[in-house]
């Protein structure tokens, strides 16, 4: 019973913690937003290995194999990135 009570309390604590941390991150989020607005950025710097994975929202239809005819597809990024919605049927 003690275990369940502790676990439930801890889960409740995650809700409080999440809300506290979200509140604390508001300024940082605002700063990131400001930087995006100031530099007119369009994408997240999550996948930096190739230009079409660095800026998926700006890539064109001919992105694949543009680095080199024999270039291997970037894995796993290539598999985890879906094509932009405007290119889907």
């Amino acid at each position: 019973m003690l275990f369940v009570t502790v676990a439930v309390l801890l889960i409740a604590l995650t809700v409080v913690d999440a809300s506290y941390r979200r509140h604390g991150a508001e300024e940082a989020l605002q700063q990131r937003g400001q930087l995006v607005a100031e530099l007119a950025l369009t994408d997240l710097a999550l996948f930096t290995e190739a230009r079409y994975t660095r800026h998926p929202s700006q890539s064109d239809l001919h992105s694949a194999f543009q680095d080199h005819p024999m270039a291997l597809e970037y894995f796993p990024t290539g598999s985890f990135l879906s094509p932009p919605r405007r290119y889907r049927p």
Partner: peptide, 19 residues
Amino acid sequence: PVLKGWAVLYPEFHPVPFI
């Protein structure tokens, strides 16, 4: 490792808990 892929430059970031 999955997110990093082939990238050398990977941002250090702490996700904000949006649940």
